[in-house]
Write a protein that binds this DNA or RNA. Structure first.
Lengths: 207, 207
DNA sequence: ATTATAGGCTAATTTCGATTAGCTGTCAAG
DNA sequence: CTTGACAGCTAATCGAAATTAGCCTATAAT
């Protein structure tokens, strides 16, 4: 991999653990295997490295998001996918989202970095909220609205349904970011949450 | 207020906005209205100031927690309080918790500081998780278990109930920490969440 | 009245960390 | 071959920022 790219990787790695201010350019250089001044052949300053990470991650997120929305508008296409959503389907979807957010190397590191730096810059705060709250909530709200419309789920406020479905995943994700060793303890809880959620909102009363 | 105490207040205020590393002792001194070297008459280092904040906040939290538990064990006493919990009672409780966490000056600033510093020190990570996840969840789990036992709520996994009840409050709190101006948008959502939650778990099927 | 202490100040000191200067080897294009 | 850009290095530079030294005043206890 090019040195330039490697610098971004190592910098993200370090920033996500210690925050921008506590990482020295010499640390980044060492992680890359070069000396600090050599970094300046690739980026004009420490801040420039940070900005490059930001740009890269924003692009990558937008690509992902575009992939999810596929079509023009919102989760209409996925309506098909979820029209027949079963409890197991919901579990699979929730777990998939959780596992991806939690384990994707770049996603996780970027999230940790944003967590640390969010109060330093309003743009970072916006980004965090968009990627980890607003976007997932609005996507899922659209999905639940459709599942209600299709008669699969009860007709309740879909924003609330999305909030109740997603926020446990979010909260547990933040816990696991702090304590990766506790993940095993939470996996079953998440699955139970989704099944219980499904049971509560499912239309058919009897079985 | 004593200078010594004022230093802690101003330091917490600054740390909660910019993080430890980005706050200079000169900033703290200026906020207090003295010169940087004078700080050293009260604390032996910048780190010492941070530690003092930590100690103070831990004590304060323990006092609060002791007050909630009142009795010896867990939320048994509150069982009484919640034995007859109505939907409105749950709303009042949830909103109260949310408003307290979000608006109490010290609680909020301390939480922001922990948010920024959580990955720098495992002790801080523990503290954050305890105060904002483990403790609330275990308290509420006990409460819901009792409400189920009392026949008020359905008999579902109380850990999951606590997770579903609390995590929306937690997630929205983290959003409001970043964007205080959005609070108004979320208050109604929280209330709807709690009422919908209550409706879903309430025992009486018909009305 | 004397003195010790607390708490403040200014002026160093010291250390650290980002960045710049300037040199060097490599290698591909001409 | 030879030249220029690239990517590395070592050795400055330069500016913070924490902390220390040493001085001063008020005040409270002796």
């Amino acid at each position: 991999m090019s040195t330039k790219k490697r610098i971004l990787d190592e910098a993200l790695n370090l920033f996500s653990k210690k925050g921008y201010a506590n990482v020295f350019v010499a640390d980044i250089a060492e992680a890359v295997g070069i000396k600090a001044p050599s970094l300046y052949k690739h980026y004009k300053s420490k801040q420039d490295i940070f900005n490059a990470i930001l740009d890269e991650m924003k692009q990558s997120y937008d690509r992902q998001a575009a992939m999810l929305d596929m079509n023009g508008n919102n989760a209409e296409a996925d309506a098909m996918v979820f029209a027949d959503v079963s409890e197991d389907g919901l579990v699979k979807m929730g777990m998939g989202l959780f596992m991806y957010f939690l384990h994707d190397e770049y996603v996780q590191k970027f999230r940790k970095m944003l967590t640390i730096e969010q109060f330093a810059d309003p743009e970072l705060a916006e980004l965090f909220t968009k990627q980890y709250s607003d976007d997932p909530l609005s996507y899922q709200s659209a999905m639940f609205a459709m599942l209600s419309a299709n008669g699969v789920l009860k007709e309740e406020n879909p924003d609330v349904m999305a909030l109740q479905f997603y926020s446990p995943l979010f909260m547990i994700m933040t816990i696991c970011d702090r304590h990766p060793e506790r993940e095993a303890e939470f996996i079953p809880l998440i699955e139970q949450h989704i099944r219980q959620f499904s049971g509560l909102y499912s239309k058919e009363k009897d079985k």
